[in-house]
């Protein structure tokens, strides 16, 4: 029983946490991919930027959180999300719009987004340094230990406050996005443009508005993902390429252009990652007691933690080989 709880704590919960983060990033990436038709490399640094905005706000008003009973950073997050959304729209106006109007190839847009990501990196590192930071300034991370009503279970289920907030926020964001895409006029216009941009244009959809809304959603979600990730662990300014790969993998696994696919893809990538680095020896110990001949090594993981980055990569390759459209029938554009 204890083994099972250990497994649940370290694989299911952790996998779901990192999966939710990937999912939030991948929804933004997949929307940009579907509507603007290019892989947005600056997404990871947009996440870091959003988290830094939250850090600044938290440092300015450290007393807000305790008054409400939530971490200050989480209370400040909506403000930072609005700011990041506007920054994303601004970046589009400054760097992508002209290129788009010149009808350059998608790959040039990718190049431009690499330029943007380098600029963001430079700014973040210049103003905030390269060390890790904590989003908890005046408050502390609450940890819930849940006792299970079984006799054989001496371990507790462990969930932290930011993890719960993350799950709640993800559920809220997904429902809101679902309603927006399916019920509102603008959301329908977005889906139309993702399906066929030319047809959308001739049927009178204002493509500029749609592009703007796409950036607002992508920017806000990137900010939320970055903040919630930093709340759960720490804020690392040099994350960018390391987290970009799983996010792209999640978007492609789910099928490019499909937000629900991105959600599923995020969880697939996150859970696979935690399963692969999980040390199976602990769970298999009882088996060793039952069969003495079995000599388990101290660590029995599929992939050492240092090589975690290989997991999203191989998921990506596998999906590109067998099902380039993704699990949810996205499109190959």
């Amino acid at each position: 029983m204890n083994e099972f709880i250990f497994f649940f704590n370290s694989v299911v919960i952790n996998g779901a946490v990192i999966g939710s983060i990937y999912a939030m990033g991948a929804i933004g990436v997949t929307l940009v991919f579907g509507i603007l038709r290019f892989a947005h490399f600056a997404h990871a640094d947009m996440m870091t930027l959003g988290a830094f905005l939250v850090l600044i706000l938290t440092a300015l008003f450290p007393a807000v959180g305790p008054a409400i009973g939530l971490p200050t950073a989480f209370v400040m997050m909506p403000v930072a999300m609005v700011a990041t959304a506007f920054i994303a729209v601004g970046i589009d106006k400054l760097f992508y719009k002209k290129l788009r109007e010149n009808n350059v190839k998608p790959v040039v847009m990718v190049m431009a987004s690499v330029g943007v990501t380098l600029m963001l990196q430079g700014l973040i590192r210049f103003f905030a340094g390269t060390g890790t930071q904590s989003l908890y300034i005046d408050d502390r991370k609450a940890i819930f230990r849940i006792d299970l009503p079984f006799e054989s279970a001496s371990r507790n289920l462990v969930v932290t406050e930011p993890q719960l907030l993350l799950f709640l926020f993800l559920a809220f964001a997904v429902i809101a996005l679902h309603l927006f895409l399916n019920k509102s006029r603008l959301g329908k216009a977005m889906r139309a443009m993702s399906d066929n941009p030319d047809l959308a244009k001739v049927s009178g959809i204002n493509t500029n508005t749609v592009v703007g809304v796409t950036w607002i959603i992508a920017g806000a979600l990137a900010c939320a993902a970055g903040t919630l990730l930093s709340l759960d662990v720490t804020l690392k300014p040099d994350l960018s390429f390391m987290i970009l790969l799983p996010i792209f993998a999640a978007a492609i696994v789910g099928g490019v252009g499909s937000p629900y696919g991105a959600l599923a893809g995020g969880f697939v990538v996150g859970l696979t990652e935690t399963l692969a680095v999980f040390n199976w020896t602990f769970v298999l110990r009882p088996l060793e007691r039952a069969i003495p001949a079995l000599d388990l090594p101290n660590t029995l993981a599929f992939v050492p933690t240092e090589y975690k980055i290989t997991i999203p990569f191989f998921i990506l390759l596998a999906i590109l080989i067998w099902r380039p459209t993704g699990l949810f029938k996205g499109k190959i554009i």
Binding site: F95, K98, L99, V104, V108, M111, A112, V114, G115, V116, T117, L118, M119, L120, Q121, G122, L123, R125, F126, G129, T130, G131
Partner: peptide, 23 residues
């Protein structure tokens, strides 16, 4: 750590160059 930050900031110039040249 201002000096190391100054060196990091060169990233910005590289990114800006890419954007400007493409544009």
């Amino acid at each position: 750590d201002l000096d190391s930050r100054a060196l990091q900031a060169r990233v910005f110039v590289i990114g800006l160059t890419i954007s400007l040249v493409l544009r």
